[in-house]
Design a protein around this nucleic acid. Structure first.
Length: 426
RNA sequence: GUGGCUGUGGCGAAGUGGUUAACGCACCGGAUUGUGGCUCCGGCACUCGUGGGUUCAAGUCCCAUCAGUCACCCCA
């Protein structure tokens, strides 16, 4: 226990950090391009925020929250998602008083107490955006386009955007009864899970994986049949924008998202080959949420993507950015005095922006050369007794094994010159 | 929360109940004087996840537990 990480968590080790850096860099860059500004909210919130924001009946709230009491006996919860927090901050700081829309993005860890499996962890990372203050279909389209833009820049292929409209609360209510009426007769024949869903969330029955259920719902009415004029207009508006913007998508009238707050636009981005958890991002509109969280009636839309799943997909598609530690100069020294000189040289070189690694343990020269090789050093400086006495250093070019003796007081300038030239050639 | 599979050195992986638990990679050291990448030689396991049990004898069988993994529910 002492030496194992908590279940469902991961250490990101030095060997894999570069792909995270790369991913985060792309995310921030694209967010900037689309005019989003970062918001950082606490990693825990009052439990009631999620109960209210995410929805009492959702799985997240019912069984997946990390809830604890602090010393003041307040109930707090590690955030399972960030939309509720963003909404809270939006309301708390009265951002609705600023020019609308307000476009925010966030990036960080989320927590859900769930059984880990491929692409699912108890602590995972999400990047997400929220747009408050407008319900123009063009914004919905832009948010979808932006997410695809990100995936493309990362080099991901074979992704599908699934699009649907879940309507306004009124549409959903009427559709719900419509669906229940349709299924009433065959209710007994549905699988056990779906019989459960019949009352709780009948729309979920539509995307049950059970073949029998699929067959039974084949001719079921879709949400599109139940949309009011206003919702229908909005939905066609989103599609019109997407078409114009050249974003491909697949209409999926059975797409239902799990959180209670979604209205109108719902979308999900699916990847292949990363196991059962194929959704690498998703989002939708939440026009009633701000008000429900105690703010004014401000519409909003957002999406979130799971970074672990993106990385998994990249790996699966052979987009690999693993890098090993590498260094421009390695300083090998023999003996205490030489090591001191080496340390001084290292400082000077680093001051010139050159990456340096050196020996700290008085290893044999052979061992130091091996180390230099492992670090992928372009140059190795060797300082031994001989060199110390003559105020010189041996400069060895690792690539062709050539070496020369340079006066100690000239080595910095010499190396700085060499490395700059080398950089220019690239 | 439910189910399947798995758990041997840093990693990968043999081991069909019986003396000192293979091997590969990695790591460390060496192959005449202070020099890398190839080759050769050598070194590197006090708990075979943990705790019980069966047995004269268990890494090998049984039970429990923990963890990993995949899937379900659900989601990123």
């Amino acid at each position: 226990m002492l030496t194992t990480r908590p279940r469902g968590t991961n250490d990101i080790l030095p060997g894999e950090i570069s792909k995270w850096h790369h991913l985060e860099e792309v995310l921030r860059q694209v967010a900037g391009l689309y005019g989003f500004q970062e918001i950082r909210t606490p990693i825990f919130e009052h439990t009631e925020l999620f109960q209210r924001g995410v929805g009492e009946t959702t799985d997240i709230v019912e069984k997946e929250m990390y809830t604890f009491f602090d010393r003041g006996n307040r109930s707090l919860t590690l955030r399972p998602e960030a939309t509720a927090s963003a909404v809270r901050a939006f309301v708390e700081h009265k951002l609705y008083a600023e020019t609308q829309p307000v476009k925010l993005y966030y990036l960080g860890p989320m927590f859900r107490y769930d059984r880990p499996q491929a692409g699912r962890y108890r602590q995972f990372h999400q990047f997400g955006v929220e747009v408050f203050g407008t319900r123009e279909p063009g914004v919905d389209a832009e948010v979808i386009a932006m997410s695809m833009d990100i995936y493309q820049r990362l080099g991901l292929k074979n992704l599908t955007v699934e699009l649907n409209s879940v309507g306004c609360p009124a549409c959903r209510r009427s559709y719900r009864t419509m669906l229940q009426e349709f299924l009433e007769e065959s209710k007994e024949k549905l699988c056990g899970i779906c019989q459960n869903r019949f009352d709780k969330n009948p729309m979920r029955i539509l995307d049950c994986k059970n073949e029998n259920c699929q067959e039974l719902t084949k001719n079921a009415p879709t949400i599109n049949d139940a949309l009011c004029d206003d919702c229908r207009d909005h939905f066609t508006g989103v599609q019109e924008y997407l078409n114009k913007m050249g974003v491909e998508y697949r209409l999926n009238p059975r797409l239902v998202r799990g959180l209670d707050y979604y209205t109108l636009t719902a979308f999900e981005i699916m990847a292949e080959g990363i196991g059962a958890q194929a959704s690498i991002g998703g989002g939708g509109r939440y026009d009633g949420l701000v008000e429900q969280c105690g703010g004014p009636p401000v519409p909003g839309i957002g999406y979130a993507m799971g970074l672990e799943r993106i990385l998994l997909t990249m790996e699966q598609q052979g987009i690999d950015r693993a890098t090993s530690k590498s260094v421009q100069v390695y300083i090998a020294s023999l003996g205490e005095k030489a090591r001191l000189v080496g340390a001084a040289l290292a400082q000077e070189l680093r001051g010139k922006g050159i990456t340096v690694e050196k020996d700290y343990q008085d290893k044999s020269l052979k061992a130091q050369m091996k180390a230099a090789n492992r670090y992928n050093a372009s140059y190795t400086l060797i300082i031994g007794e001989e060199e110390l006495k003559n105020e010189e250093v041996v400069l060895r070019r690792m690539q062709d094994s050539s070496q020369e003796v340079i006066p100690l007081d000239g080595i910095i300038a010499y190396l700085a010159g060499e490395i700059k030239e080398g950089d220019d050639k690239r």
